[in-house]
Amino acid sequence: MGDWGGYLSLILQGALVTAKLTVMGCALALVVAFIAGLGRVSRFAAIRWLATAYIEFFRGTSIFVQLFWVYFVLPFAGVTLEPIQAGIMALGLNVGAYAAEVVRGAILSVPRDQYEACIAVNLTRFQRMRHVIFPQALPLMLPTFGNNAIELLKGTAVVSLISLHDMTFQAQVVRAQTGSTLIPFATILVLYFLMALALSRAIRMIETRITRGLDGVR
């Protein structure tokens, strides 16, 4: 007992890993969400089918199992990932599947008369999406994206199972070495909460920026 400064720095190192997983995981989730979400509304059946398969698979199986597959099973197929890479990949693909449905829903909720206006001014399909539909769908996605990002943050705790030294893992280490459960877990409780708070603030800021000048649109 005694060296609480050292233990705290251990937990803060873990916090850094958790933050890194969250940021990178969200980045990956965002990319796959847009690809799969747009794929779901594609006019090509094969693309719709692929996107649906991805979404249903990753929503329908546990993140825990997905992580084990990425880290322990993929090496048999010749793909060996660092623990951090495996963690980012599993989290990003998992949350990306949920966020893809958000993208699809937002795009479909743009009123039909906007599509008709685009045809009347002769925009191509791509121009229609890029300049008219997507900019109106994006503000609708953001609040739910915020939820998804916080889910991802909380999901990072499972990566301790593939020996990644994230915040939860380090708290377990401190607990094992000091015998105290309360102090390390109270610490990470506060830290997780602060990170989630920072995330939702960040999303709120982006929301205000994007919807600026759109008052009264909906």
């Binding site: 008369d113 906007q114 009347a120 002769n122 900019p135 109106q136 649109v217 909906r218």
Partner: peptide
């Protein structure tokens, strides 16, 4: 379509 233009009952302006 480049020959034709249309004005709609509900305007259909781009709100953004």
């Amino acid at each position: 379509r480049s020959h034709i233009g249309m004005v709609f009952q509900h305007f259909n302006l781009f709100p953004h």
